[in-house]
């Protein structure tokens, strides 16, 4: 714990900002190289593809997932994009469902004390229900289907969106509504130009908050009932006891989740809400 107390001294001793960046970059690279090195050493020591395949072995598997297996005569030319797109489309449609359900609930909760009390417990409970529940329930109700995972993702993202919309509606600037009335704006205009723009960032924040959870639950429903998708591939290779392929798909799962979250969503948000970058605090 004593380390806590020397933190600031340590930081100032590192010198200039550029030097600091270089050091941080170096440490980051070291971290990743170290990670792969430890993985490699462990795999050599365990010497079992079924337990821990080497990084090289997993890389081969990734190559096959993208380009197909050259030793197989019925080379399918790679199965990645089909499965990846199946997963992504489900998540996107799931969010459409989640926004469609969560937004009206959020409006009710945001503007009315009774509905807030009525919906608060159900929404909070929906937020802490284990993901397993959604995955198996949609399997029971819909069987192996396209609708099931979409609905599961919708249900899991709904509480996040509802809570955010409720906050957004509660926070609509009363001063702007007053100003609009003073200048004789119609209710329709106020809704379109004041209420919707104030609430929209909150809907998006709900999507961002629930994104990684929805992505996880989406894969889980594929584990239980799907014929395509990243989750389905992990399950299939688990049953075949093909450890290199399991790890390869898990790696791809994480990489694409982080890419979608960090780059795609953040970029869309920045574009949509350009005005927020200059908004003053408080």
């Amino acid at each position: 714990m004593a380390g806590v107390l020397v933190d600031s001294a340590e930081a100032s001793a590192l010198g200039t900002a550029a030097g600091l960046r270089r050091r941080r970059y170096l440490a980051l690279v070291t971290g990743w190289v170290g990670f792969v090195a430890i993985w490699w050493l462990l795999s050599v020591w365990m010497d079992s593809d079924a337990r821990l395949p080497s990084p090289g072995r997993v890389w081969d598997e990734v190559w096959i997932i993208f380009n197909g297996d050259p030793t197989n005569s019925r080379n399918d030319g790679g199965i990645f994009w089909n499965n990846f797109l199946a997963s992504v489309i489900r998540v996107l449609l799931g969010f459409v469902v989640g926004v469609a359900m969560g937004t009206p609930l959020g409006f009710l909760m945001g503007r009315n004390r009774y509905w807030r009390a009525f919906l608060k417990s159900p929404v909070m409970i929906a937020g802490s229900i284990p993901g397993l529940t959604y995955a198996v329930m949609v399997l029971v109700v819909f069987g192996i289907s396209f609708v099931g995972p979409v609905l599961a993702i919708g249900l899991i993202s709904m509480p996040y969106i509802a809570i955010n919309v409720a906050e957004g509606v509660g926070g609509v600037d009363k001063g702007l509504l007053n100003m609009s009335r003073s200048f004789g704006r119609s209710e329709k205009q106020m809704f379109r130009d004041v209420v919707v723009p104030s609430v929209l960032p909150f809907i998006f924040a709900g999507v961002r908050l629930s994104f990684s959870l929805a992505w996880k639950v989406g894969q889980l429903t594929e584990v239980f009932g799907a014929s395509q998708g990243i989750g389905f591939q992990i399950r299939r290779n688990f049953q075949l006891f093909n450890m290199p392929a399991v790890i390869a798909w898990i790696g791809l799962f994480i990489i694409f989740m982080l890419v979608l979250e960090r780059f795609v969503l953040v970029r869309i948000e920045r574009k949509l809400f350009r005005w927020r970058q200059w908004e003053r605090e408080g």
């Binding site: 104030s198 809400f273 005005w275």
Partner: peptide
């Protein structure tokens, strides 16, 4: 009207 604060739509 002119209000105490500007009351402009930030978006």
């Amino acid at each position: 009207y002119v209000f105490q604060d500007a009351r402009l739509l930030p978006w």
